[in-house]
Amino acid sequence: MFFSCKPAEMANLMEDEVFMAFTTYAAIVILKMMLMAPLTAYYRITRGSYANEEDVSRKSAEEKKKLLKAHPDVERARRCHQNDLENVIPFMLIGLLYALTGPELSAALLHFRLFAGCRIFHTISYITVLPQPSRGLSWILGMLVTFSMAYRVLSTVLLL
């Protein structure tokens, strides 16, 4: 049942509340992750901080020297986006497998909501520079949620 879904079973999967909850929260964290690129671009433009020579190719040599520099706001947004990639992708893969194990809806919603909330709070704490341990705690809780789902997957389908 775990990986061999027939078309009729796929239709049932699309009606499964846990699977629908997963797709909802997966879409939320993916959209949040995708919005980090335009935010980084916004910071690059408004802070005059570019990383690549081609970004300032039409500028004079003096202007290029001023613009080809790092800025803390740009670096925070860029690192936040990198952190999203390192956390959202594992959540997506583990979360999908978790949803397929047939967990209780309430447990699944708790996992999905906690993870999405942690990622949103992590971004807010990163971008607005909230003091630690706010960002660290949100990262740890998000990782624990993913590990909890992974434990459920392994304990449900472990075939060694």
Rank of each mutant, 00 (worst) to 15 (best):
M1S: 12
M1G: 06
F2A: 13
S4F: 08
K6G: 11
P7Q: 09
P7L: 13
A8F: 07
A8H: 13
A8E: 14
A11K: 01
N12Y: 04
L13M: 11
M14G: 08
M14Y: 12
E15K: 08
E15F: 06
D16C: 11
D16S: 13
E17Q: 11
E17M: 04
F19N: 04
F22I: 04
T24S: 06
Y25V: 11
A26I: 08
A26R: 02
A27Q: 04
V29P: 05
V29E: 05
I30R: 01
I30M: 14
K32P: 02
M34F: 06
M36H: 11
A37C: 03
P38H: 02
L39A: 06
Y43R: 01
I45F: 06
I45D: 07
T46E: 05
R47V: 05
R47L: 12
R47Q: 15
Y50W: 06
Y50P: 06
Y50G: 06
A51V: 10
N52Q: 15
N52R: 14
V56M: 03
S57G: 10
R58F: 10
K59V: 10
E62I: 12
K64W: 09
K64I: 00
L68K: 06
L68G: 02
K69W: 06
A70V: 09
H71Q: 10
P72G: 07
V74T: 02
V74H: 03
E75R: 02
E75Q: 13
R76K: 13
A77G: 03
R78D: 14
R79H: 11
C80D: 05
H81M: 14
Q82S: 14
Q82T: 14
Q82N: 12
N83K: 03
N83H: 08
D84L: 03
E86M: 08
N87R: 01
P90F: 04
F91N: 06
I94F: 03
G95R: 01
G95E: 03
L96H: 05
L97R: 02
L97Q: 02
A99D: 05
A99I: 00
T101M: 00
T101D: 04
G102R: 09
P103M: 01
E104D: 15
S106P: 05
S106W: 11
S106D: 14
A108R: 01
A108Y: 01
L109C: 11
F112T: 07
F112M: 05
R113V: 00
R113D: 04
L114C: 11
F115M: 04
A116Y: 07
I120H: 06
F121T: 09
H122I: 11
I127E: 00
L130D: 03
P131E: 02
Q132M: 14
P133H: 12
S134N: 11
S138W: 01
S138R: 02
W139V: 02
W139S: 07
W139K: 10
I140S: 12
I140K: 12
I140A: 13
L141G: 04
G142F: 07
M143N: 08
L144H: 10
L144C: 14
T146A: 07
F147E: 08
M149Y: 01
Y151H: 09
L154R: 11
T156V: 02
V157K: 15
V157T: 14
V157Y: 14
L160H: 01
L160I: 15
L160K: 00
L160C: 14
